[in-house]
Amino acid sequence: MIFMPSKSMSIANKLGIVLATSMIASTQVMAQEDRYVDIMPFVTRVDSDRNTDRQSAGLRAVYGWQTSGNWFTEVQLFGTQLDRRSNRFQSPPVVPSPYVYTGKLVPSSEDDLAGLGMDVVYSFSGRNGYGPFLLGGLGVSHNNTKFDYGVQETNAFVNLGAGITSGAISQNGLKVRAEVRYMRDFFAEDFDDWQFGVGVSIPLSQPPAPAPVVMAPPPEPKPEIVNIDSDGDGVLDQNDRCPNTLPGAKVDEYGCVIKDQTITLENIQFEFNSAKLTPRAEASLNKVVQSLRDQANTQVEVAGHTDSQGNDGYNLRLSGQRAESVRRYLIASGIDAARITARGYGETKPIASNATEAGRAQNRRVELTFR
């Protein structure tokens, strides 16, 4: 739609239509990465052949959007009123009727000039901060002169321009825009006009600011799998269902003690000719307690043995008393009494020669048999 002002329309009304049309256009165009509306009063220096005053004021409204990178497209509407030049008044041409005049157009000394156009703009900084720009485009102008030239009052125009936009001057991103344009208006014998404008640029949408680069925290180190066999039973801790196996015990693939085997308890001593445990023996039995707690559902027999010195009957009774002393200590430490039995074997099951002190020491022992 081409804006065609009438002869009776005031310059204020024209400018109001320009602004309203620009705002309507901004709501109908699909949102782009960057959109803006510019409102710009300007001063024009027109061609002397227009037979008007050389200077006049006008107003331009621009709707622009980013097309690619630093390239933008703008739609412009502008209007200005060129007043009569008193010392160069032309007589009206002879026009038989509207829209049939075919002779040379002689501009009158009054002209309401309006235009609608489209420009391609290259902004050297992409409208980020202070940025110079170049533009060029074409459009349609309407010269509403004192004399009615009919359809010949609407013609094409081309324009070229250069300018600069400032950085934001307010929190909402408002900017200042200044420019100069050369306009070639193909009305009558063609006119060369210049326009100088300064106005405001109002952002409608802007690309979001880049998010601050935050260094990701280093990944948590994966727990190191350490191949440890704490109880030395041949099964790694990570697979051991029955930890704290007693030294010398045979276990299955899960680290649990196999039934029907006997192991000798280490460092189990008694006071001389007595069934009372020494402090060192109690400390050793604490390890047995922990092992039995971790070897669930096992039944054990505590067996006491002596060397061959002394009376056979006495040795049998002493070995039984010592086995019972160990059993009671285990029960007192929390092991279920139903899991433990005690028996003395005296000197009947030697594992070494009783002829030497070293052999007799081996025979004086306490064993644990798993049932």
Rank of each mutant, 00 (worst) to 15 (best):
F3E: 00
F3S: 01
P5A: 10
S6N: 10
I11S: 13
Q28K: 13
A31L: 09
S48K: 12
T52W: 00
R60N: 08
Q76I: 13
G79K: 01
P96V: 07
Y101E: 03
G103K: 01
P107C: 00
S109R: 01
G115V: 03
L116R: 03
V120Q: 09
S125L: 10
P132E: 07
P132Q: 06
N159Q: 14
T165D: 11
A168I: 00
A168H: 03
S170V: 04
Q171E: 14
A178N: 00
E179T: 14
F186H: 10
F187Q: 00
F191M: 04
Q195K: 08
F196K: 02
G199H: 05
V200E: 05
P208Y: 06
A211N: 08
A211K: 12
P212F: 06
P217Q: 09
S230G: 11
V235I: 11
L236N: 12
D237M: 04
Q238G: 09
Q238V: 12
R241P: 06
C242F: 07
D252V: 04
D260S: 14
I263G: 01
T264A: 08
N267G: 09
F270Y: 09
N273A: 13
E282L: 10
L285Y: 02
K287L: 13
K287S: 12
R293S: 11
D294G: 06
D312K: 15
L318F: 01
G320C: 07
S333R: 10
E347S: 15
T348R: 15
A352S: 08
S353H: 08
N354R: 03
A355R: 14
